[in-house]
Write a protein that binds this DNA or RNA. Structure first.
Lengths: 336, 336
DNA sequence: CTGAAAGCGCTAACAG
DNA sequence: CTGTTAGCGCTTTCAG
């Protein structure tokens, strides 16, 4: 017996009528722009309050040419994307923009996620670690500014904001070598975003130290790390391992320890992402941190610059990573 | 020197002009509703295609009374919320609704998340594991249908779809007792959504088996589990532990194993959520699974029922959980 | 089956 | 400082 009454949501006109002014005035007051006396302002505000008025975003956006809306495509599974989304909200708010989110799920691919945002008339798109191919992204960028975060894209059409992933792994390797390790293996991320850069960073760093690179296929999940650990256990253990990301490192750690190998006693291990899990007291994984604050701020700024037609020097902005040393790395055990 | 040309996005009118028909016809064709001949349909479609027309959601929503939009509030940190969002997308699509997401982040509270959705003229709200108080939710429900997922709320105003969390822990306890355990401890979730129910389920089950309940304060993160494990290690170890959720169980497992205790040799452990992490080969945690498909389908359906004024029997819909037995539970070691 | 016309709720020019 | 006047792009009567 729900009263399905005529309780239409109050509109600008309702407020105007109640306050005895024109709708335009109400609009001015609601948007906090100059053009109304303090007295009127107060009266309008009260009227709006009394009837529980809330501006209609849709109508507002429809009317104004700029929607002040940024579309964000993110993977609902990726913990790191969660961090990025948090940062993006903050960054967007600082510049007076709103975010509309569109998730990529196992059943909902990037194409669909993007399509939804396009219909919402976002001014620009920020895509986190996209899986789409370069051409698809370029096509998209022909329609509106596209900023890709946390993945490098070889296309002049899209902007990229990413961490210097090669540098990140180099930091890890340098740290291990400084500790005295001479036998450092890398477990990679396969075709995941950033994996190629990290692999390269590893190779460069190892060569620079005149050591022999050895790369094991990994991936981005704990299972991939576990598999890599089993491969590692099949032969003589290296003294240190740099792993593609924290999740993978976790799986690796787990299998290693179950096999009775001590970390960092027999093997030192580094992860990547400085995720919450790495910070856990019980895990306490040495890891490479990405600067979320920086990444998100730059991404939003770049989107706005494109919208404002600000000339842009570098299409790709690379943010330096930071090594967070914890307890999974230590000097190698002396064997003699 | 970006050509800020007059390349306005094509509108209905543009398509109409190109196809030599009226805008109304185009609207009909684009929405796939009856009222146009196959020939016209084809012609309009081609015209739209040629100029790359995309309907403007905002305008569309503004004009039609029903937005066919469901607002979803979720925690960007919670892995389980990610699963729920995936399910909600699918469920909404099946009934011809769209989702608009609004994230709760460390800096963006539920209130803000909800405010954003209200402005977007969602028809109803689906809130995942809300932290808001009952009164706040009730106030909200006075404005539009509110469906709360994965938390029970004592209010006649909002609908609830949740797992029978008490039953879930009971399943775990029954399983452990069946294995022969007589000393089962529960590590709880404090004030987290569902924690009270799980505590109660534990207590009931233990009493039913004529055992003595013992509850340790826990929480929802790995660190909480680690702390609980340390507390546990301070005294004689129980033979089994049911933990509030998988993350917490993970932290507990880790500390236990580092202390040299074997699982499930000395202690059996169960988690809750059947998260990806529990399924990892290297973790392989016995856990209670929530039926995401069911939860999300019911949530969407309930929202629609409210919108359609369908009379509703039970405000709260409770979905049975399922125990997934893995390798962290086994018969207790005989001690004599 | 098709087209003309009237708004949805709001903002942006103006003119008073 | 205030009010009037046009629409934003679309859907929806209602005639033809």
């Amino acid at each position: 017996m729900a009263p399905t009454g005529p309780d239409r949501r109050p509109t600008l006109a309702d407020v105007a009528a109640r306050a005895g002014v024109s709708t335009a005035l109400v609009s001015i007051v609601m948007r906090d722009v100059p053009g109304a006396s303090a007295a009127t302002r107060e009266r309008v505000r009260r009227a709006a309050e009394e009837i529980g008025y809330r501006p209609d975003n849709r109508a507002r956006l429809l009317r104004s040419s700029r929607s002040r809306l940024l579309g964000v495509v993110f993977g609902v599974q990726h913990a790191f994307h969660g961090d990025l989304v948090s940062g993006l909200y903050a960054a967007a708010e600082r510049v007076g923009y709103e975010l509309t989110l569109s998730a990529v799920t196992p059943e909902r691919d990037e194409l669909r996620a993007v399509a939804g945002l396009l219909q919402d008339r976002c001014e620009a798109l920020i895509i986190l670690g996209p899986q789409s191919g370069t051409t698809a992204l370029a096509d998209l960028a022909a329609r509106l500014p596209v900023v890709v975060v946390a993945r490098s894209v070889r296309s002049a059409a899209v902007d990229v904001v990413r961490t210097a992933d090669d540098e990140g792994v180099q930091l890890a390797v340098d740290h291990l070598v400084a500790l005295g390790h001479r036998d450092v293996v890398h477990v990679d991320g396969g075709r995941a975003p950033g994996a190629a850069e990290r692999r390269r960073g590893y190779r460069d760093a190892v060569r620079r130290h005149c050591l022999t690179p050895r790369i094991l296929p990994g991936g981005l999940t704990e299972d991939d790390g576990a598999a890599a650990a089993r491969a590692l256990l099949a032969g003589p253990l290296p003294s240190a391992v740099t792993v593609f990301n924290d999740r993978c490192a976790l799986g690796l750690l787990d299998v290693l320890r179950r096999a009775g190998r001590t970390v960092p006693g027999e093997v030192s291990v580094t992860g990547y992402d400085d995720s919450r899990i790495a910070r856990l007291a019980s895990v306490d994984l040495t890891s490479v941190a990405q600067d979320v604050e920086q990444l998100t701020t730059l991404a939003v700024r770049r989107a706005l610059d494109r919208l404002d037609g600000v000339p842009v020097r570098q299409r790709e902005q690379v943010v330096p990573p930071r090594l967070v040393v914890r307890s999974t790395t230590a000097p190698p055990r002396r064997e003699r």
